[in-house]
Amino acid sequence: MKKNKLVNSKVVFNHSAFAKAVLLSTILLVSCSQKIYELKKVSGNQTAVDATLESTEEIEAFIAPFKKSLDGQMNEQISYNPTSMHKNDYKLNTPIGNMMAAIVRTQGEPVYYSRTGKRLDMVLLNHGGIRSGLNAGPVTMRSAYEIMPFDNEIVIAELSGKQVHELINYLVERKSAHPIDGLQILLNKDHSINKVLINKKPIDNYKTYTVATNDYLYNGGDNMSFFKDTPMTKIDYKIRNALIDYFKKVDTLNFKRDNRFDILK
């Protein structure tokens, strides 16, 4: 690799020379009367940062110890993914979104049950919260950190039937592939609601539903206002740790798109 030296680093700055220079330039500026400059021409472009560029040695050397420590922990293989998955693979629901929702249920429900004696009715996460795709091949600790770099935790909110309707209206209105599990929304061709089921049953307006989500969404993230002031239980389980725990126990991932949220043909 070609190397390039860092020339204008503030780290190596000589402070007394700097002070002198500032003094000198101040004198220069003050001694002449201040000039005015008018804009004449502007040009704009961008340069791709890629392998055709040189690398700065000092920067690489500075990064090296951080990288070494991190790589030791991140490169461990913990599962295998046969098919690449990205959050924009399909509309309305995606293999990677379905994976996220399934893992939150699989990993989160036993903890929630042991603390409250209650089961989960459904899971709702956000499409924007899937921060990276998962390539085909080995799944590592790094994959989990890339998909979920945030430190958000799984929380369980209790929603009334009415609040669940608000949740559904939110999803239907936005038609984004927010990860869901336990909930099915089928739309007609004109995008009106054809059928909505939770655990294969119609919504009971008098029932309380347990919805696993993350603390970001519970606190109104992505404008999910239907969670506001609903009873909430923490299970002290980070989403990323749920991914890591699941990957460690499952040899090969197998997630697909299905018709949990779809438009009828």
Partner: peptide, 10 residues
């Protein structure tokens, strides 16, 4: 890559 960006800036 930061090391390349640094070289370009220089």
């Amino acid at each position: 890559g930061v090391a390349r960006r640094a070289a370009l800036i220089n």
